[in-house]
């Protein structure tokens, strides 16, 4: 058990993660924690969902256990399994169980990527029962008040095969994220990369331009994350156009005409 606690301690965030709120999301997050209601984060890629969670966890002084979901994720991967150690069968908690046992925050990132039969284990945990059955051990865990479940997904993906079931989504309080507004986004880019403000402004303007192209076939424009990548390259002394091409243009799309258009934007600005 001592080991488990140690494992969990590693997830405690002691230094304040840099986070600039876009609105009232911190208030909603804290209220959800207080009322023991799980949280659903929606929003395009790279707009600050993960960073928000880190900040919230720091503020609530709870460890943050993150699981990136993928379609091979099994229930055992979440809940735990027996392992053999020195000829002994030893039970090892999965990240979800660990978080429940010790009152941590469990963050399931990109939850739609997980198979539906995996997602159902969170059902009893996500309603007011707040229970996690561990079938293998015949154990029923009840979550302490400090435990919090958070899931995230990006509604922009259009595959009909990947949608969140109503019975899952209706257990959550939702926070909708979008790219921060211009001034805020500039602050973020400059702070994260240490780049000068002038370049930061241009990068954010570039992002705004790419985000106009939804109807031209670019489903998602450049995210805050991409801007930070570009800014870091620039900060390291790379030529600006080259940095933007590597971090933004080529990353955004393979479609030749759109790539050319984005490249024209870069060349107009830098």
């Amino acid at each position: 058990m001592g080991k488990n606690i140690q494992r969990l301690e590693e997830h405690l965030i002691t230094e304040q993660p840099f986070y600039l709120p876009q609105g009232d999301e911190l208030i909603i997050g804290e209220s959800a924690y207080r009322f023991k209601i799980p949280l659903l984060l929606k929003g395009p890629t790279g707009c600050g969902k993960t960073r928000f969670m880190q900040h919230l966890a720091w503020k609530l002084k709870r460890p943050l256990v993150t699981v990136s979901c993928h379609d091979d994720l099994s229930t055992g991967d979440l809940v735990g399994r027996y392992l053999i150690k020195g000829g002994e069968a030893v039970w090892v908690d999965g990240p979800l169980t660990l978080a429940v046992r010790h009152g941590a925050i469990c963050y399931l990132d990109e939850v739609v990527e997980a198979r539906k039969d995996t997602t159902v284990v969170i059902h009893p945990l996500a309603d007011d029962r707040r229970e996690l059955p561990i079938e293998k051990r015949g154990e029923l865990l009840t979550a302490p008040p400090e435990f919090m479940l958070v899931i995230s997904y990006n509604p922009g993906y259009q595959s009909v095969l990947k949608d969140l079931k109503q019975s899952t989504r209706q257990r959550f309080i939702s926070i909708e994220f979008d790219y921060p507004e211009t001034g805020l986004e500039t602050d973020i880019v400059c702070h994260e990369s240490g780049i000068d403000r002038e370049t930061g402004v241009l990068l954010v303007r570039l992002a705004g331009m790419t985000r106009q192209l939804k109807d031209e076939g670019l489903p998602e424009g450049a995210s805050t994350r991409l801007l930070i990548h570009a800014a870091k390259l620039i900060g390291s002394g790379m030529e600006k156009r080259r940095a933007c091409r590597a971090a933004i243009t080529e990353t955004l799309t393979d479609e030749p005409e759109l790539r050319a258009a984005v490249s024209e934007m870069v060349h107009s600005l830098f």
Partner: peptide, 10 residues
Amino acid sequence: PRLLPYAKSI
């Protein structure tokens, strides 16, 4: 084809 999306982005 490359300048029209460019223009629309502005």
